[in-house]
Design a protein around this nucleic acid. Structure first.
Lengths: 235, 235, 235, 235
DNA sequence: AATGAATGAGGATTCATTCAT
DNA sequence: GATGAATGAATCCTCATTCAT
């Protein structure tokens, strides 16, 4: 009993320490969001030895991959919980999608470094596992969403979510230049290629989803969807 | 190892040398597309001295910003030239958009490093100028496109192009993991979150543009557009 | 005649250009007095081509050696002209010595880089010539001073000047930390090892010269010197 | 190439390694006294990795600042220990001052680079701390010296030491041209402005201290001092 | 498990000087 | 004489990761 208790507590300790590393990494990244904090900084700020960090993560980037995974999970959870109506209209969905991104700017800031920096330095297998879990998350959310929308094809729903993600991450990168240059690039002459994220995101998503409804939904009666203003003319 | 004229006195000579640096940088980046080649490699492969590179570009990243600008220009030129019909339908436009991206994978590979790496290390003012020129390019192309489509609002057209770009860059990053991990991530279980770029891009663009037509075009007679299959129901 | 005229003007042109280089170098050094300006900066600011600079000076440091020589000349000229009285007292002499140093801070700023930086990169022969001319300047000034003081041994006078110079250059270096650190080193706790130059210089010189009078002057009647306050007790 | 204990865990081990770096830096500087050795050279000659050097010192210049501090400490210690007599005369003091400088030419060679090179590249705070410790050393030595001389004003004593230092560092720079030019500058025509250090230093110091006694000491009975030859006439 | 000392590969950039034009 | 394009040596420091303790 003692041993299990001890083991259990030890496992808990481990988990706590892991979370400590993650949260410290997150904090530091928030302070300087244009680059991943150094392993030394994470160790020192969390009060853990550098070597210890590497007992919990095989590489620095793995820390941020884990952080990113938490964000993906939280994002989809947020989407699911935000869609309260049984038959949400597109505005509701879009709001749900944007809510977490806007309230947790770290998410997309990190996601924007994913392909260029993080994935470069993560063990292939770890990355595969990460992506497979991600598929689960997306799939599960899509099924949920599809059922709420009383749609049969949850794959299409998943695809729509992925396209939304792609569009959003693209818009994020366009609209968030490195802090160092942020000020000078505020210039209004650039508004076309550097839009304000929130507005543009919602509008662009509405367009994308409208296209979806136009393509796929038109075959249906359209009753499934309470179409928001933007979509009013689509019928 | 190429030997050019000993000294570039004329503006033309200088331009040639500048292009030599750019093309060498491009070549090297093609060989290892996950990171920018080193300044030393670029110099040595061009057959010029390291210091000379810095006569033509203030930093290594500026080389790649210039390369990227060439790609943007070529892209929009390609789009404009590919749209031959007076009143192109959406398929034609989408094909035009995708053509250059597909035939010049370097373009998006580089563009994906733009915000995370290139813009970080480029002088603010240079970056501002670059972006202002980019606005010109986009604006000009939008006006051209709008006139061909007999649309009044070229701003909307520009916006649509930007959204298309955002979506495409997002899809590119999703579908192109670092070479190092490419093989293991071929796993079909990941197809949802790692689609084949070309197909997905065209389909997603169609959806986006369809949404545009649905939203904006519905006000018009719709005769302006020869809507492709995907849009068949939109009439 | 034409030729000589031309030659003369050309020689004058040359001299003008040389002076232009020197004055530009001086200006730039004033702006950032902790390091020698670059050859490129001097060329560009003076509107002369980089290569041309090297037609007038064999190395960058030679420019500053020449500038330094001008300062030495001006300094000794200033000393001689400032000592108006026929039999100057020590205060007068000390004031004369300090006047130029205080009004031309560039002089000692440059002189402080002389042994560690300038002389390192100057051709041996040039340096020898420079120093030989310097000896002339010092000797001549000493003779003048000695005669005014009605002293026979001008060598001692020269030696005294050299010691004064050594003390002053040492004090200058102690009291002028690099600009970058100047603020933080203002701390009054450091006043002992970082005195205010002007006050300390005058006081220290007085002490040194008093020592001279004590040693050498005591043999004399003392009538040669109108001893200032500081020396009042020495009689 | 020396091999020390693999890892310096204890404070003592670390101190040993730190000293290893310092002594290696000193050795290399002795070999080429006109410039600071490179970080790579120090590392390689100590048999440790480059990165390790930066565990012990934040910058290369900090190494030499530390070395300089050791010299200052040793110098003042030497002065104090060399003055054995209870009431030392000025010769004794001057000998004490000169002894270390002459036996450790590295000291002044380094000190001559201090303001122009070392202090430029050292963190402000480090430099402040260094100087504050230096004040302590000087103060403590002055008090000791003042008490031995049965003088009340140890501040004056400190000031005198500082002036002596200033004079000596100035004389050192004048009399020690860069090795590269040393030979050609041996020319006897330059003896006036390039004296032999040891002789000139002692004589100049004597003069300075004599001036001190003349100014300050004259008020006293003079019995405190066994005045050497040079001062004989001052009474 | 934890530590933190040690590693050492890795790369951009500056700038005095030269020399082809 | 003038130019300014070309050169390329020279070097510091960071930081992810390992491994002896």
């Amino acid at each position: 009993m003692l041993k299990t208790a001890k083991r259990a507590r030890s496992a808990e300790d481990k988990s706590i320490k892991r979370e400590l590393i993650l949260s410290t990494a997150a904090e530091l990244f928030d302070i300087e969001p244009d680059a991943l904090p150094t392993a030394a900084a994470i160790a020192s700020k969390s009060g853990i030895a550098k070597g210890t960090v590497y007992l919990y993560f095989k590489s620095k980037e793995e820390i941020f991959l884990a952080l990113l995974e938490e964000h993906y999970q939280a994002w989809f959870a947020d989407i699911r919980s935000a869609i309260t109506a049984d038959k949400p209209d597109s505005d509701e969905i879009i709001n749900a999608i944007c809510h977490y991104i806007e309230s947790q700017p770290q998410f997309f800031q990190l996601a924007s470094l994913s392909s260029s920096i993080i994935e470069q330095n993560v063990d292939s297998e770890i990355l595969l596992n990460f992506k497979q879990r991600l598929v689960q998350i997306v799939t599960s959310a899509s099924q949920d969403l599809a059922s709420r929308l009383e749609l049969d094809e949850h794959e299409t729903c998943a695809q729509l979510l992925m396209r939304s993600y792609a569009m959003l991450i693209g818009l994020w990168q366009i609209s968030h230049p490195p802090e160092k240059n942020a000020e000078i690039l505020q210039d209004p002459s650039l508004s076309l290629i550097q839009p304000e994220f929130s507005l543009e995101a919602r509008d662009a998503l509405a367009q994308l989803w409208h296209g979806y409804i136009g393509q796929k939904g038109s075959k249906s009666t359209g009753r499934f969807w309470k179409i928001g203003n933007l979509f009013a003319k689509a019928d």
